[in-house]
C-alpha cells in the first residue's frame, strides 16, 4: 500500500532529522583577521565618553527623558543608541566590582558574534559578516523589516526604529559602515578611541584574547600596565593594581564566541549576559534546516510520492464523484 510507503519515507526523514547526521553544521570559525574590542569592566569608570562618541560617529541624537536635558539619558540600546553603559547595583552599592553592596559597569553594544544569530536568521541577507575582519554589518537596502534578527540575537542588539514609518534596524557596525569606514581607513572604533581609561580596547580578536588571558593570570593587587585605545600600540601604557578578575573571558567560547570580549570582576550573569552554551543556536538551526532541505531532495521525494498517491486516490474517486 502506498500510504505505507509514504509513512515509511516520512519516518526515515524524521529519523535523519533527529540524528542530525552528516549534515550537522558546527560553529563557524573566527574570520582570519577578525577585529574586535575588549571591554574590561574593572577599568570602566562609567564616564560615558564611549556613548557620546558613538552618537557623534553615527550622527545619532541624544535620548532625552524627563527633565534630564543636560545629558543623554539613554536607558538601553535603541534605534538612537548603539552603545550604552549600564550599571549593576546591589544594596548600598559602596564598592566597585563587588557583588554584595557593590556596583559595576557594563557596556552594551553589538558583540560581533563569530557565528552570528542575526545573520543566520535573516531571510534576505540584510546582515552580513565581513569575510576578512568579521564585522557584522547591516544593509537597509535588502532589509524587509521582519525583525527576525532581533529574535535571533542572544544579546538583543539589533534595534528596529518603531517610531519611524520608514524605520530600519540599528546596530553597532564597529564604525565600519559605509560612509564611516574607520576600520578600513586604519582608525580604531570611536568608543575605543574615546575611552579615557582603556576599558574599551580595540584590536584583533587574537591580540585581545591574549591581553584578556594576561589579565586573567594577574595576581590581585599586583601592579600591571595596560594599554589604552589600541592594543597594538604599546606606548600607551598605564599602570594600576590588578583587580580580582572572574576567570572567564566572555566571548571566547559563548555560542561560538564573539569578536567583542568582556572581562569583569563580578559574574557575567549579574551583568545581564545571557545563559549561553558553546554551541551556537544558529548552527543548530541551520543543521535542522539543511537536514530537511538539503538540495530540496527530501521535499522533492515527498512531493513525488504525494503526487502519485493523490493522483491515484483522485482517480479512484472518479467513479463515484462528479
Amino acid at each position: 500500500m502506498k500510504r505505507r510507503d509514504f509513512l515509511k519515507a516520512s519516518i526515515s526523514g524524521a529519523a535523519t532529522l533527529c540524528s542530525g547526521g552528516a549534515l550537522a553544521r558546527p560553529n563557524l570559525e573566527p574570520a582570519p583577521n577578525a577585529v574586535g574590542m575588549l571591554y574590561d569592566s574593572t577599568l570602566c569608570v562609567g564616564c560615558k565618553a564611549c556613548v557620546s562618541k558613538c552618537k557623534e560617529v553615527n550622527g545619532m541624537p541624544a535620548v532625552i527623558e524627563g527633565d534630564w536635558y543636560s545629558w543623554d539619558s539613554a536607558r538601553d540600546l535603541s534605534s538612537d543608541t548603539l552603545n550604552v553603559i549600564k550599571v549593576y547595583r546591589e544594596g548600598e552599592a559602596e564598592v566597585k566590582d563587588r557583588v554584595e553592596n557593590g556596583f559595576a559597569f557594563e557596556k552594551r553594544s553589538c558583540m560581533h558574534c563569530v557565528d552570528p544569530g542575526c545573520i543566520s536568521v535573516c531571510p534576505v541577507t540584510a546582515l552580513r559578516k565581513d569575510a576578512i575582519n568579521g564585522i557584522v554589518t547591516y544593509h537597509a537596502d535588502a532589509c524587509i523589516g521582519c525583525r527576525t534578527c532581533m529574535t535571533g540575537c542572544p544579546y538583543n542588539v539589533p534595534q528596529f526604529d518603531y517610531d519611524n514609518p520608514f524605520g530600519e534596524i540599528h546596530k553597532c557596525q564597529m564604525c565600519n559602515q559605509a560612509g564611516v569606514e574607520r576600520i578600513n581607513k586604519g582608525q580604531i572604533t570611536g568608543c575605543a578611541e574615546a575611552c579615557p581609561t582603556g576599558a574599551t580596547l580595540f584590536g584583533t580578536r587574537e591580540a585581545l584574547l591574549q591581553e584578556a588571558r594576561r589579565r586573567m593570570s594577574l595576581k590581585p593587587g599586583e601592579i600591571y600596565s595596560y594599554p589604552r585605545g589600541d592594543v597594538s600600540k604599546p606606548h600607551s601604557l598605564y599602570e594600576k593594581p590588578a583587580p580580582e578578575y572572574q576567570q572567564h573571558i566572555w566571548g571566547e567560547k559563548e555560542a561560538g564566541g564573539t569578536n567583542v570580549l568582556h572581562i569583569s570582576a563580578i559574574p557575567f550573569d549579574k551583568l545581564g549576559m545571557p545563559p549561553l552554551r558553546e554551541r551556537s543556536y544558529a548552527s543548530i538551526s541551520e543543521t535542522v534546516q539543511h537536514t530537511i532541505y538539503n538540495y530540496m531532495a527530501l521535499p522533492a521525494v515527498v512531493l513525488g510520492g504525494l503526487t502519485y498517491v493523490v493522483r491515484r486516490n483522485i482517480n479512484d474517486d472518479e467513479g463515484d464523484k462528479s
Binding site: 569608570v45 562609567g46 564616564c47 535620548v63 534630564w68 545629558w71 539619558s73 539613554a74 536607558r75 538601553d76 540600546l77 535603541s78 543608541t81 550604552v84 553603559i85 549600564k86 550599571v87 549593576y88 547595583r89 548600598e92 552599592a93 559602596e94 566597585k96 556596583f103 559597569f105 557594563e106 518603531y162 579615557p196 581609561t197 598605564y238 594600576k240 549579574k270 551583568l271 545581564g272
Partner: peptide, 23 residues
Amino acid sequence: FALADVKTHTPPNMFPPIEDRQQ
C-alpha cells in the same frame, strides 16, 4: 596628566541599571 582612579562611592542615579530598558 595620568588618569585618576575614580573613587565613586555609588554610581550616579542616571546610570541605567542592567534591567532598565527603553520603552
